[in-house]
Design a binder for these strands. Structure first.
Length: 582
RNA sequence: GGGCUCGUGGUGUAGAGGCCUAACAUGCCUCCCUGUCACGGAGGAGAUCGCCGGUUCGAAUCCGGUCGAGCCCGCCA
């Protein structure tokens, strides 16, 4: 076994050993120097007395010097043991000491848990990574990959690598383009996902494919979304024509990742299937956090003829009135903050009322008759001390605003148990959506999924009612997986685009390879892709996804350590046939 | 592209018109110290308060612009 600073590998008491690592801290008592030596496994105390051969060297040491020490492992006397570190019952009595490399004064401290702003951490990521927490993250992430691979292999999935230099895809996120030198004026694109390749693998006779795939998207990041490249567990299964088979194949892995690997509780052992429509109506989100209730209640019918113009107007214009009940009361400033939140989501304001002594008071209560108030209180089962928050507008807007407030209040009221993971499958996404901005029909998710009901369903007059055989998995309010039963039938493919007004030529120009492949005996197939960074983030209770990878870009896509992106050698640019640079 | 918040010694913060010749913690440098483990003690260096402009007798503090960061909206099939 390689000698590390883990207690198990240090050797026996009074054995003479050699250890290497970084100077975590140094305590100089004049004639006696203590050094905390650190490596990826932990810390051991080195003790050097005046008179020992290494003493002179020990006096020169500074934080983060890299050293090698030789000495005798010695048990500490009872009163000197330090229970805070794993090796605290022993220390190394140093006989000789070598400096392997020095360190300048540090821009960020390694031996501290003090908050450091992220810009500095990323600029000196190699120092940041030395910190025990980041060491643990990297180690745990490697175990996570192993755990996943083991499951996939034991379920007969074959790992296949797909190209990084791929093709631009017309739907979806913005591509990273790579200019071709050999074919000037032409571009590769880094894959947003191996979507088309994995479907071609199905046509290619691979029964079950998986890959821990790097995916590239040039879109603005978020706390739960990396800029540039990120990782997916991408998989696909042939001769599968229903999503349930994919879901039940992958469920055990995710559940075990939560419990066995992550050491957390599942909210429920059986994972609910919730339709997109139900999720939107009950939680105002297609990625609801199910760890708490506070569901949206529809009051449209009850309040159609109420005395409050804001509500009746919304309803008469085809909109809805909904409410959430919160078992809590709020200060003026809290209400203001929530109102700001609602406005940020597009609401005009945040009407609310408070139930006190069996009476509704505050904000908009005065606009309602006792009968209307009674309907509200009854439907929401509201009690003294509850606050009822309303939304009225188009249904989609109401869902969005109240869904956002629900999540916000879940945080504020501490309803999100960090030790519990609530999983759910969201199913039956709408195939088409109405794009308000372009004032036309567009794909809801992706054009590769099979419409439920196939060709026949596409003929429906209610295009917005067509459901895709498409499913997401959500965990604690995060979307962690997206998948679908794929459309492997060229006729259906043409028709899917035809509904949006795209002709055959368009489809062939964009998806030529897939379409022609599908003409040569494509098996039905289905699959999905899990966001590995995001799942790991949930499992480790991190709120920022940049905490779970070694070298993330910052919010504007810059690697502040490596200084990328950067300008290129003009010669290389010229060779690519690119003429104009700013 | 838009909104909100932030920018003060190496690091993390305080200061919110004059008390600032800018404070505290930590780090750094010098010296003392043989049982510390966030060692302790004495001394010292280090910031024109992101940048530009304005208001004012006076600006780290107020205003405008600009640059950078974080979060959110848009975007992310």
């Amino acid at each position: 076994m390689k000698r590390t600073l883990a207690i198990e590998t240090l050797g026996n008491i009074s054995e003479t050993i050699k250890v290497q690592g970084w100077v975590h801290s140094r305590r100089d008592h004049g004639g006696l120097i203590f050094i905390d030596l650190r490596d990826h496994t932990g810390i051991i105390q080195l003790t050097i007395g005046d008179g020992s051969e290494g003493f002179g060297t020990a006096e020169e040491l500074r934080d983060e010097y890299v050293i090698e020490a030789t000495g005798k492992i010695t048990e500490r006397s009872e009163d000197l043991k330090n229970p805070k570190i794993r090796t605290g019952s022993v220390e190394l009595l140093v006989e000789s000491l070598i400096i392997l490399n020095k360190s300048e004064a540090l821009p960020i401290q390694v031996n501290s848990t003090q908050y450091i702003n992220e810009d500095n951490r990323l600029r000196y990521r190699y120092l940041d990574l030395r910190r025990p927490k980041m060491q643990d993250t990297l180690k745990k992430r490697a175990e996570y990959y192993t755990y996943i691979r083991k499951y996939m292999e034991s379920n007969d999935f074959t790992e296949v690598a797909t190209p990084i230099l791929a093709n631009s895809s017309p739907e979806g996120a913005r591509d990273f383009l790579v200019p071709s030198r050999v074919h000037q004026g032409m571009f590769y694109a880094l894959p947003q996902a191996p979507q088309q390749f994995k479907q071609l693998l199905m046509v290619g006779g691979v029964p079950r494919y998986y890959q821990i795939a790097t995916c590239f998207r040039d879109e603005d990041p978020r706390a739960d979304r990396l800029y540039g490249d990120f990782y997916q567990l991408d998989l696909e299964m042939s001769f599968v024509d229903n999503g349930e088979e994919v879901r039940s194949t992958m469920e055990p892995l995710i559940k075990n990742l939560v419990t066995e690997f992550g050491g957390k509780k599942l909210l429920s052992d059986s994972i609910p299937r919730i339709t997109y429509a139900d999720a939107m109506n009950k939680y105002g989100s297609d990625k609801p956090d199910l760890r708490f209730g506070m569901e949206l209640t529809d009051l449209t019918d009850e309040l159609r003829d109420c005395g409050f113009g804001v509500f009746t107007n919304a309803i008469s214009q085809g909109g809805a009135v909904k409410a959430i009940k919160v078992s809590s009361q709020f200060s003026r400033s809290q209400i203001d903050e929530m109102t700001e939140k609602a406005k940020a989501e597009g609401a005009g304001g945040m009407p609310y009322m408070v139930i006190e002594n069996g009476q509704a008071t505050a904000s908009i209560a005065k606009f309602f008759s006792p009968e209307d108030l009674n309907k509200i209180v009854t439907k929401l089962e509201a009690n003294d001390g509850d606050t009822i928050i309303f939304g009225s507008d188009k249904l989609e807007k109401v869902n969005k605003v109240l869904g956002s407030l629900r999540s916000y209040l879940g945080d504020k009221l501490d309803l999100k148990d960090p030790d519990t993971v609530a999983l759910a499958w969201i199913i039956d996404f709408p195939f088409y959506e109405f794009d308000e901005k372009l004032n036309k029909l567009d794909f809801g998710h992706n054009p590769f999924s099979m419409p439920k009901g196939g060709l026949e369903a596409l003929e429906s007059d209610d295009k917005l009612g067509i459901v895709a055989d498409q499913y997401d998995m959500v965990a604690n309010g995060y979307e962690i997986c997206s998948g679908a039963v794929r459309n492997h039938n060229p006729e259906v493919m043409y028709r899917v685009f035809d509904v949006l007004g795209y002709d055959k030529e368009y489809v062939e120009s964009k998806f030529g390879a897939m379409l022609s492949a599908f003409k040569f005996g494509a098996p039905p197939h289905a699959g999905c892709a899990f966001g590995l960074d995001r799942i790991f983030m949930v499992l480790t209770n991190e709120e920022n996804i940049r905490e779970v990878i070694a070298f993330p870009k910052n919010g504007s896509g810059v690697d502040v350590m490596m200084n990328s992106p950067s300008s290129a050698d003009p010669k290389a640019v010229k060779e690519l046939g690119i003429k104009s640079l700013k």
